[in-house]
Design a protein around this nucleic acid. Sequence first.
DNA 1: TTGTATGCGTTATCAT
DNA 2: ATGATAACGCATACAA
Lengths: 326, 326
Amino acid sequence: MTNIKDLAKMAGVSVTTVSRVLNHHPYVSEEKKNAVLAAIKASNYQQNINAVHLSKGKTQLIGVVLPYSDHPYFSKLLKGIAQQALEQNYHLVLFQTDYKECRELGALRMLKQKQIDSLIICSRSSDWSTIEEYLPYGSIVLCEDVKDRQVSSTYVNHYKIFYNALEYLYKKGHQRIGYVIARKSGTNSQYREKAYRDFHTKYQLSYQPDYIIDECLYFEDGEKAINRLKKMKTPPTALLVTSDQVAAGIVVSCQTHGISIPNQLSIIGFDNQPIAKMMNITTIEIPLLEMGRSLFLQAVQSDLTNKELSSRLIERDTVSYKEKNK
Amino acid sequence: MTNIKDLAKMAGVSVTTVSRVLNHHPYVSEEKKNAVLAAIKASNYQQNINAVHLSKGKTQLIGVVLPYSDHPYFSKLLKGIAQQALEQNYHLVLFQTDYKECRELGALRMLKQKQIDSLIICSRSSDWSTIEEYLPYGSIVLCEDVKDRQVSSTYVNHYKIFYNALEYLYKKGHQRIGYVIARKSGTNSQYREKAYRDFHTKYQLSYQPDYIIDECLYFEDGEKAINRLKKMKTPPTALLVTSDQVAAGIVVSCQTHGISIPNQLSIIGFDNQPIAKMMNITTIEIPLLEMGRSLFLQAVQSDLTNKELSSRLIERDTVSYKEKNK
DNA sequence: TTGTATGCGTTATCAT
DNA sequence: ATGATAACGCATACAA
């Protein structure tokens, strides 16, 4: 494997000059430049990037932490991150955590080892204190409202979105509203739960803990959600489903179980994935691609920023107007 | 940032000794070992992994090339790869190519630069000649039948699978069979097309090019496929759908269009994803997790192996027995 | 415009 | 069992 020393010898110049043409630096004569270029061609030279990394102290590698890479929400987010990474000439190292904290710690450790320049945590498992411990080693960017903490972040306002969606359903006459979610813990889930509580307080509705259906991630979990509903004496008349895939699964499952949508059950999905369009599911669009791109940019920029992205309701066919029973 | 030199000074030993305890080498006295360990604790030391990489000429990084990371087929394959990587203490660098050859070349180049130790190509875009050109720089493993070429691979026999599935449908009385696929090019697709042709020849059926429906990748593409079918004068009575998600999309789309499954249209999906189980779709199980794990192992092993994995038909409710019209 | 010398942090070789 | 030193391949401050 030939290195710049060899090239220098071949071209009859110094290693510095070789390095200069390699990095497109100015102040090198055409003549010598060509000699170097010729040597590169002749030797089939390839830079050893690890040496560059060691020398520069940077790797052009950004870590991405996410629980499930095969979940459409995270896939789309990742896609946005990857798009921007490509543009900025960075590469991505993937950390699929399954929400296991030790895996997230592994990513943090790589940051400390300088194998990655920064870390994007799409959904956090570890405590704030651990995150802060690793902050000195590179920028860490998050996908949640971080309040006044000293990290960059891009997120949507889950509280507001949830609250608005609940009010929307209320105005459509729904009084018994449940929601379907992936996990109950996590910052975003807690914002949603708070919105759910506040909504019930404001409209003096009775808060039903079993209307919160968790551990629903994929299409096939729609079946699971419906089974939970069927066990209830007075099931909700509307469901906020924090994933379009699960919403679609619910719609299909309802057909099997003879539940009419939206008459017997109204559904609002999340994300506005293509599946929601195909199945005419009312949904709340979350700008996942834009979010991904923003997260990446924050990862490579040195200044701290916090960006709240907006979302919007897309009305389709899965929400009914319900006569209020007095 | 403290380095081993500092540690050596602190512990009153040489850098070599420090390196020894860092790498759990033998021949170091308990006393000095403890001194080093103490220094490590005191200084919050962290190895600079890039220096290790440069010194060792290896990075413990494996590249993974795939067209779409948000597609369930590749997600699941990736999951298998990631599982094994975790076990062997490797990390993964993701190359999402969208089947753009230049992106695949980028991955190949990283192999040459020694930023990654080997490369797993889940679905290939570039020519064999280009692959071979990069073979000297690290092992490249593929997910297709590579014949006698000097690379490792794990794959399923797409020819046999397709042929068997076609015969299965034929025995159920189907004479007009179509198939739905992601792309027509690619080694695996070509095997399938060959099986499709051979099947038609053997049973003296007329080969209908428009029964091959391509560019269907996601659930929502099921709608697209059905629209193509509706334009035909004599549409197929059965469909081999090379993705369970698309198969599910077709099933849902058929309900909307009033097409009865399996009476008017039989469906066989591929992969045996959870969605197929939920919707009772007859499918062909492909051991994607196992495939991923095998691919990874081949990537880190030095010897060349080629492994064919088996698949099996899972009979559910989307294939009808059709009376043959004489 | 060019080259020399040094540093990056670690591992490996070869003494002792 | 321990340590000095070379090597890994490249970038860069500084000198010329």
